[in-house]
Amino acid sequence: MLVIRPITEADFPALMRCAEESGHGFTSLPVDEKLIRGKIRHSMESFGKEVTTPGTEGYLMIAEDTEAGEVVGTTGIEAAIGLDVPFYSYHISKVVHASRKLGVHNVVELLTFGNNYTGCSEVCTLFLRPEYREGSNGRLLSKCRFLMMGEHPQRFAKTVVAEMRGVSDEEGHSPFWEWLKEHFFSIEFTHADYLVGVGQKGFIADLMPKLPIYVSLLSNEAQAVIGQVHEKTRPALRLLEKEGFTNHGYAAIFDAGPTVECDLLNIESVRHAFHCSVEIGAHTSSSEYLISNTRFRNFRAVAGKVAVDRELNRARITLEMAEALQVSDGDTIRLVAQ
């Protein structure tokens, strides 16, 4: 059984392996031992804090195969982005250049650099090892964050965003970055991506063009990938879109991948989740759910079959599931249908 739980210091080797396997463009998990250890410490401190409003907390969780005793993935939430380190993005907009006298009317797109998502919560750092990308594992790893956020909304912002990885090849070359590099940055995409991952974002404000960029001036290759996602990111984007996330015209500054957003209370897995009292025992139900306990520091989430009685607000779960969730008879759990 796959169980989601908060990360601990003992998970460092597994998280490093996830960082190494995630590839180029996975900015939130760079291959840097000092940074990874810092992320783990920050997460442990964040889970231990008493919080009434979202701040700089970062919550990092891992997916553990309980049978193999092996960490196979990771997922995370930033409570409020842009408060300690700037969160930059492009806003894609349109302007009209027209002349009645000449009968000319042109609509052109602009990329405007800014910090529009400051203070929003971000779901991030989603990675699952390839051999586990089957069944409900991916949905559990992504949606467990919404079970947590719905149960503890005071810790998160009204708006939730997700910055999706943009288009790049296996060597880490981004068509969008190639144009930026030629005109403004003069460093490789992988280097810039790494600097952002380790929190060294000062060069962005120093070198990024301050005035809006006319999209028509970019290379054809760069224009073609604006708002497009990396091939490996498409399943994650589809899942978020089913949850109600949409693109409001924002893109990442390096690879131009889309940034999608949704109000926390409008996320499908928040809106349709419900509570039940636990009954432990065998059952024959075939109904599949994502389930979490209602604790925070000891948060646990799993996926599986549950016999739900909505009239009595009871849910019968197996002993294995109860042990994974660390719940007993009579405890409350949060569920959402898969």
Rank of each mutant, 00 (worst) to 15 (best):
residue 1 M to N: 08
residue 7 I to F: 08
residue 15 L to M: 12
residue 22 S to Y: 02
residue 22 S to A: 15
residue 32 D to P: 04
residue 34 K to A: 13
residue 47 F to I: 02
residue 61 M to A: 11
residue 63 A to Q: 04
residue 69 G to F: 03
residue 76 G to L: 05
residue 77 I to Y: 05
residue 80 A to K: 10
residue 82 G to P: 03
residue 91 H to T: 09
residue 92 I to G: 00
residue 96 V to I: 12
residue 104 V to Y: 02
residue 108 V to Q: 15
residue 114 G to L: 08
residue 119 G to D: 01
residue 120 C to G: 01
residue 121 S to W: 08
residue 124 C to K: 11
residue 132 Y to E: 05
residue 135 G to T: 10
residue 138 G to H: 02
residue 142 S to W: 00
residue 146 F to Y: 15
residue 151 E to Q: 15
residue 154 Q to L: 08
residue 158 K to E: 07
residue 160 V to G: 05
residue 162 A to I: 07
residue 169 D to W: 05
residue 177 W to P: 01
residue 185 F to S: 09
residue 193 D to V: 01
residue 198 V to T: 09
residue 199 G to W: 00
residue 200 Q to D: 11
residue 210 K to I: 08
residue 218 L to T: 05
residue 221 E to L: 02
residue 231 E to F: 13
residue 238 R to T: 12
residue 241 E to A: 14
residue 247 N to L: 07
residue 253 I to H: 02
residue 257 G to C: 00
residue 258 P to G: 08
residue 265 L to E: 11
residue 274 F to R: 01
residue 275 H to N: 15
residue 285 S to E: 00
residue 294 T to M: 10
residue 304 G to S: 11
residue 309 D to H: 05
residue 312 L to H: 10
residue 313 N to A: 14
residue 323 E to G: 11
residue 327 V to G: 06
residue 329 D to Y: 01
residue 336 V to T: 13
